[in-house]
């Protein structure tokens, strides 16, 4: 494998710096929220992680379509990379959401549409990885992965709506099943800046991770081919 391209090296350093800056902003620049106190600070990275997770799954969806059209192996590598990173960040989003919910809504878990949808997504993409593990032939694995990434992503909005209608008809006691109800707050200018910067930071982090993960996928692919050549 060739050495890391210069752009990637720079990007990695920039990402680390941005992450540090975002953390500093969250702790020292953003004001303390008046009702919820310190736990509200989790919110900035919580939303950013959810956004990054969605980005990852969206990348896998697009890569799935691209693979089915072009049959180029690189799209398969991009797809797995997207799913893997999406899973990691969606998990962060779910757990931090739960930690936030505990002091604010007085429960670890509510069947709120967003929370439930995020969890179901996590299950869909865990199934994606299990599906890939069960297939040995690389070409078939790529095709199955692409199909499942497409189907899985399409089911997400429908899942969300089904749970939302479900909840509007049967309101939950806590926060009316809506995250904006209890635990909502007006963002001050400084909060908004911190929030936006966190979003940008996590997007950059996503690009960096995706790039590294794709390079790794390509490397693994080359090794696989080399192995085949030696065995033949």
């Amino acid at each position: 494998m060739t050495a890391q391209p210069k752009t990637l090296k720079i990007l990695t350093v920039v990402t680390v710096l941005m992450l540090a800056a975002a953390s500093l902003m969250v702790f020292f620049y953003a004001p303390l929220e008046a009702v919820m106190g310190q736990v509200q600070k989790v919110f900035y990275f919580h939303v950013a992680a959810g956004w990054t997770g969605m980005l990852g799954f969206f990348v896998a969806f697009v890569a799935g379509i691209a693979y089915l059209i072009t049959h180029k192996h690189i799209w398969d590598i991009v797809g797995v990379a997207g799913v893997e990173i999406g899973l990691v960040f969606m998990l962060i989003c779910i757990i931090t959401g739960s930690i936030w919910a505990r002091p604010i809504w007085n429960t670890w878990w509510t069947w709120d549409p967003r929370l439930t949808t995020a969890t179901i997504m996590e299950l869909v993409y865990a199934a994606y990885l299990m599906l890939r593990q069960g297939v040995e032939d690389p070409d078939r694995r790529a095709r199955f992965g692409a199909v499942y990434a497409i189907i899985g992503f399409l089911s997400v909005p429908l899942t969300f709506f089904s749970i939302r209608i479900f909840r509007t008809i049967h309101p939950v006691v806590i926060g009316g099943g809506d995250a904006d109800a209890t635990g909502s707050f007006d963002m001050t200018a400084k909060m908004l800046q911190t929030f936006m910067f966190s979003l940008v930071t996590f997007s950059v982090l996503f690009v960096t991770l995706l790039w590294h993960r794709i390079r790794m996928g390509k490397f693994a692919d080359q090794l696989e081919q080399l192995k085949m050549k030696l065995l033949a």
């Binding site: 199934a127 599906l131 069960g134 297939v135 189907i151 089911s155 899942t159």
Partner: peptide, 22 residues
């Protein structure tokens, strides 16, 4: 898809259920 994998019977519900939740 699932019948063409190694884990076949176990895999179908795992693949199918999260998608048919709606």
């Amino acid at each position: 898809m699932s019948v063409q994998t190694r884990t076949r019977d176990i895999l179908l519900p795992i693949l199918l259920f999260p998608i048919v939740i709606p």
